[in-house]
């Protein structure tokens, strides 16, 4: 596993600088340690043992398997502290799925208002020089 995850290393030119002496020594020591480690147990720990668990992760608790709500609940003002926490949690949950913009005016109200508005406009220009008539002309063409 350790071999797979590559650690970020300082470039050689930087390590050769005078003030980097301590770091250089530390890195060399680390390298030695890890090499010793793998060679020390190489005859006991086989590659098979290293990959024995494969893709399987053991979990001893149900809470990571099943979906469950928090076990501390309060209702109708019995414990305001807990209820505040519950509200915060619910707010978090509800916010996530609604990525669309929230409508300030519903479609029905908009339709009603528009109808009223159009009627008003027609009443204002009964003589046929309004915008509506212009549009009609375009439609006729």
């Amino acid at each position: 596993m350790a071999g797979k995850t590559k650690k970020i290393q300082l470039p050689k030119s930087v390590l050769e600088m005078k003030f980097m002496k301590k770091t250089r020594e530390r890195i060399e020591k680390e390298m030695e340690n890890t090499q010793d480690h793998s060679s020390l147990y190489s005859n006991i720990i086989t590659n098979e043992m290293r990959s024995a668990s494969g893709n399987f992760i053991s979990e001893s608790s149900f809470i990571f398997c099943d979906t469950m709500v928090e076990g501390r609940l309060s209702f109708k003002g019995m414990n305001p502290e807990i209820e505040r926490l519950m509200e915060l949690e619910n707010a978090d949950k509800n916010e996530q799925p609604s990525s669309e913009m929230v409508k300030d005016v519903s479609d029905e109200i908009l339709a009603k208002k528009m109808n009223k508005f159009n009627k008003k406009r027609q009443n204002q220009n009964p003589n046929g020089e309004g915008i509506n008539n212009k549009r009609k002309k375009v439609n006729n063409l």
Binding site: L73, S74, F75, K76
Partner: peptide, 13 residues
């Protein structure tokens, strides 16, 4: 039950 009467509950696993 939550709208019936005020109560508090803690369930331990």
């Amino acid at each position: 039950l939550k709208n019936q009467w005020p109560f508090e509950l803690a369930a331990g696993m």
